[in-house]
């Protein structure tokens, strides 16, 4: 255990902790854009600069390990000035179209600009503009909003093992893109979208589906493979407008293309909305009572005529445990046969 002082507060930290982690654990907030707890540190945004006694220049707290008796100051006037300058610089090369940005209200850059009161741009100058849009169907890549924090690059490499994107060009023209600036063609897991601190990466499905205000967030479990990733459905007006996953879940917030972007079937116009009975080869919409009465009487007849074992039930690996329990209980207790199975083998 290491003892250090941060902003006059005595803090105890583990020896492998960074100054940033130690500060945040002690309830002292330090702003960051490029840092992400699940990724290796980058040190590029420079917002987490702090002063440490005995070190002549400000250092990034996200990369500096705690040291015994270290004295850290996280918000001296000089440091605050540097942060403001950095934010001013970032915003001087940013569309600043928060009013129509998908990310507004959920954007780290916007939050920091608010917190540090960056209302004016002291720098007139060029802003990167890009004409072409990425043609992939999943991820909106608005590179004008990219602050090159590298989180997307790192998550794609370190977590997903794909490496679909990286830095290209130099200087002010530096940019993050797929090889040769082609359209993104990757696993579309959207991990990059999840870690993007600005509006540079968003889901194409999210567009114009609603602001973060009055969104009902429901934690649940993915309906696809057997991994059982925990996810959060963002619901507005009885519509799922976005899916994400919290970093605190066992799946660490990581999802796949299906889990993250495969939700719109829920509101598909193809959904069955009324019971149907086939009459003379054609489906007719009927009431629940009619459908259920018809089914029950048919079943009863068949059981009577051919015995319970002439009836079978296929339950579903897609349905809940409770529904499966109920289904097999129905087949076993109400019908009277063990002819019940599901698609485990298929």
């Amino acid at each position: 255990m290491i003892n250090l002082t941060i902003d006059g507060k005595n803090v105890i930290a583990g020896k492998d902790m960074t100054v940033l982690d130690a500060a945040r654990r002690a309830g002292i907030s330090i702003p960051t854009l490029c840092h992400h707890p699940k990724l290796t540190s980058f040190g590029g945004c420079r917002l987490c600069l702090v002063e440490i006694e005995g070190i002549p220049r400000p250092v990034t707290s996200c990369t500096t390990l705690v040291g015994e008796n270290m004295v850290v100051k996280t918000s001296t006037p000089h440091i605050v000035e540097l942060r403001k300058t950095i934010l001013e610089l970032l915003l001087s090369d940013h569309p600043n179209d928060c009013m129509v940005c998908e990310k507004a209200g959920d954007c780290t850059l916007q939050d920091l600009a608010y917190y540090y009161g960056i209302s004016e741009n002291p720098y007139e100058g060029e802003r990167r503009t890009y004409e072409t849009r990425d043609g992939n169907p999943f991820i909106e890549r608005d590179m004008e909003k990219c602050i090159l924090c590298s989180r997307c690059v790192k998550v794609c490499d370190e977590v997903q093992g794909v490496g679909a994107i990286d830095f290209a060009y130099r200087g002010f023209q530096s940019k993050i893109c797929p090889p040769f600036e082609r359209d993104l063609d990757c696993e579309f897991c959207g991990q990059c979208v999840a870690v993007c601190p600005t509006g540079a990466l968003t889901g194409k499905l999210w567009a114009h589906k609603g602001r973060q205000k009055n969104v009902n967030k429901v934690d649940t479990v993915c309906t696809y493979c057997g991994t059982g990733c925990n996810l959060t459905l963002h619901v507005k007006n009885n519509d799922i407008i976005r899916v994400d996953s919290a970093m605190s879940t066992w799946n660490e917030g990581w999802l796949c293309a299906k889990g993250r972007f495969g939700y719109s079937f829920v509101s598909s116009p193809d959904r069955l909305k009324t019971p149907l009975i086939k009459k003379r080869g054609k489906f007719k919409e009927v009431s629940w009572d009619e459908a259920l009465d018809f089914t029950a009487s048919k079943l009863k007849n068949i059981i009577k005529k051919h015995g319970a074992d002439s009836v079978g039930g296929l339950s579903s690996a897609r349905c809940t445990t409770e529904e499966n329990y109920l289904f097999q209980k129905f087949i076993r207790a109400a019908v009277g046969t063990n002819n019940v199975d599901h698609c485990a083998r298929l």
């Binding site: 590029g44 420079r46 950095i86 610089l89 100058g125 130099r170 200087g171 530096s174 940019k175």
Partner: peptide, 20 residues
Amino acid sequence: QSESCGKCVPCRVGTKRLLE
């Protein structure tokens, strides 16, 4: 400015603004 690697904000954007 044209040789900045683009990694950190003060160098990537800051030198650009200085140059401007």
